[in-house]
Amino acid sequence: MEMRERILGTALRMFKTYGVKGVTMFDIARDCGISKKTVYEHFVDKQALIDEGMQQLLNNHMAYFNECIVTTDNAIEEMVRNMKYVTHIAKTQNPVMLYEIQKYHPDTWKSVESFKAEGILCNIRKNLERGMTEGLYRQHLHTDIVARMRQLQLEAAFDPIQYPADKFEMHTVMEQVTAHFILGIATLKGHKLANQYLQIKEDE
């Protein structure tokens, strides 16, 4: 089992760095310091590695979001921490990986789409409900509409057409759209907290 996890970890790291198309089973074996035969003893083919690697990645993301719910003091802190986490992921993961999975591995991409719908969207909706309960977000928000609006914001931040890398830094884009979103739904009490977490000056 230890060898299997080692192979999977190596493959996932290489996929995140170089994308999935250009990484071969030989590349993975060489990076692990083992034979290609050993890799095939644990994974029937590259597709199996891609499937399991992507599922592990999505599970790790969901675990972080769930942990964030119970380790933050309030909904605004939770959203800001999630924003910083997503920004970190964007810096450490080559966007080519997701592009190639969507283009060349449609069955694997279904799990990503499912994660967006059942993971991210559900998490945003829960955050909105939490914020309303805490008196930090305006009451009577239509959570289905507002959650989808936030999800579209996040997806747009990753869109190189909307925010080309040579003109915009990811962390600046994420901070700006997150501040805009939170301040748009926050109560006066929520605004004060948002100013602290996002380090927004009072006169702004």
Rank of each mutant, 00 (worst) to 15 (best):
T187C: 01
E134L: 06
H171V: 07
V173F: 01
A165P: 00
L8A: 10
A179R: 07
L121D: 06
K46F: 05
M97I: 08
G190D: 03
E2K: 07
Q153V: 13
K103G: 00
Y85C: 04
K36R: 13
H42D: 04
A29H: 02
S114N: 05
Y64F: 15
M83S: 07
H142P: 00
C122G: 01
V80F: 09
A63P: 00
L98R: 05
M62F: 05
K46E: 10
E175I: 11
M97W: 06
G53M: 02
H140L: 12
P95E: 07
I89C: 08
Q102M: 12
L98A: 11
A157E: 09
N74T: 01
M132Y: 14
D51G: 00
I185A: 01
F65P: 00
D107H: 12
T108K: 02
K110A: 09
V80G: 12
K116F: 13
L154V: 01
M149N: 08
E78C: 02
T38S: 09
Q162Y: 11
Q196K: 15
A90T: 09
A165M: 06
V146W: 12
K126A: 12
T108A: 04
N94V: 05
N195Y: 15
A117F: 12
D73W: 06
F43Q: 04
R125G: 10
M1D: 09
N94H: 07
E113I: 10
C32N: 00
T24V: 14
K36S: 04
I182S: 05
A194K: 06
K21L: 14
E67L: 03
D107L: 08
L136I: 09
M14S: 03
L58M: 04
W109T: 00
H105V: 00
M79K: 12
Y163T: 01
V173W: 00
T71P: 00
H142R: 13
L193I: 15
N59M: 05
N60Q: 11
M1H: 10
M174N: 08
I200D: 15
Q102A: 13
N123P: 01
K16V: 04
K21T: 09
A11P: 00
I7F: 08
T108Y: 02
W109L: 06
T92Y: 12
V146C: 07
Q55H: 03
F26H: 11
D107N: 10
L128S: 10
Q93C: 07
E155K: 03
E202G: 08
M149S: 14
M97A: 08
Q55R: 06
K36F: 02
L141T: 08
I124R: 14
R125N: 07
A186C: 12
Q139N: 10
S114Q: 06
I7P: 02
V146Q: 12
L188G: 11
M174C: 03
G190T: 00
F158H: 12
F181N: 03
I69M: 10
H142K: 11
K192A: 15
V86W: 15
K126E: 09
L141F: 13
T24S: 15
T172P: 03
E169S: 07
K46G: 02
R30Y: 03
A147S: 14
L198A: 13
I76S: 09
A165N: 05
A147I: 06
D31M: 14
I200G: 15
K21S: 13
N82M: 12
H61G: 03
N59R: 07
P106E: 03
